[in-house]
Simulated assay, not measured.
Amino acid sequence: MQRQSPDLVEGRLPVFVFPTELVFYADTQASHKQVLTLYNPYEFALKFKVMCTAPNKYAVVDATGAVRPQCCVDIVIRHRDVRACHYGVIDKFRLQVSEQSQRKALGRKDVMATLLPSAAQAPPQAPPQEEERRMKEQLADSVFFEQPAIQTESRAASGGPSLLTVLLGLVCMAALMLPTLGEQESTVPVYLHLSVNKKLVAAYVLGLLTMVILRT
């Protein structure tokens, strides 16, 4: 029996993205590449689009795509204009999601991006209330442009991830493939059915492991 997605109002679908802020450091080459992980904990597939207020400063791999139900995708973002004139400038990325068969946006998530001269000059974290107020003010007048997709860059061969990392990743993938708690007509035993919260944790851990693997 085919599942049907719920009747959702435009813009009301929660979007799960990690991390919620990108910080690039001019003196640290490794930080010029960041990874955003988009999670889909729902029972239906999502398509996504990445937009940015300063698309000429960044290169985004797979700026558009789809996420299968209860899976996640990694979006690689590179800062390609590291200059002193951009220090402290706050840019914004917007991840907009919708159903594959629909055009209207069901949800969106804004992620701030900042270039700093050095990791030693990173400002202290502001209190949550003050940070939320500041983000709302900065995002109020932002204009977002569609981010053009580019081809995935080939990476030099390295030592690769550790065996523990690979095994943990396989465990998380297996957990995401198990039936959801309450799902009917499944041949898998009931004690192997996982709740949505557990699958979200597995997707979160898998996203972190993917970041580690991409940076090796």
Rank of each mutant, 00 (worst) to 15 (best):
V17A: 09
V17P: 09
P19F: 04
T20E: 13
E21D: 07
L22C: 00
L22N: 02
V23M: 11
Y25K: 06
Y25R: 02
T28S: 12
Q29Y: 07
Q29K: 07
S31E: 01
K33R: 15
Q34W: 04
T37G: 05
T37K: 00
L38V: 05
Y39P: 02
Y39R: 08
Y39C: 05
Y39E: 12
E43I: 01
F44Q: 02
L46I: 04
K47L: 08
F48P: 04
V50F: 01
V50W: 03
M51H: 07
M51V: 13
C52G: 00
P55A: 11
K57T: 09
Y58P: 06
Y58R: 00
V61D: 11
V61Y: 14
A63D: 02
A63P: 06
T64N: 14
T64H: 10
G65M: 00
A66Q: 14
A66H: 13
A66Y: 09
V67P: 03
V67H: 01
Q70H: 10
C72D: 10
D74I: 00
V76L: 14
R78P: 02
R78L: 05
R80M: 13
V82T: 02
V82P: 03
A84G: 07
C85R: 15
H86W: 11
H86R: 12
H86M: 05
H86Q: 14
G88Y: 05
I90R: 15
I90S: 11
I90W: 08
D91F: 04
K92M: 07
F93E: 11
R94L: 09
S98A: 15
S98T: 08
Q102M: 10
R103S: 12
R103W: 14
L106H: 05
R108W: 14
K109C: 13
D110A: 06
A113T: 09
L115T: 04
L116I: 06
L116D: 03
P117D: 06
S118K: 05
A119S: 09
A120S: 12
A122S: 13
P124C: 04
P124I: 01
A126M: 13
P128S: 13
Q129P: 06
R133E: 13
M135E: 06
M135V: 03
K136Y: 08
K136S: 07
A140F: 12
D141F: 13
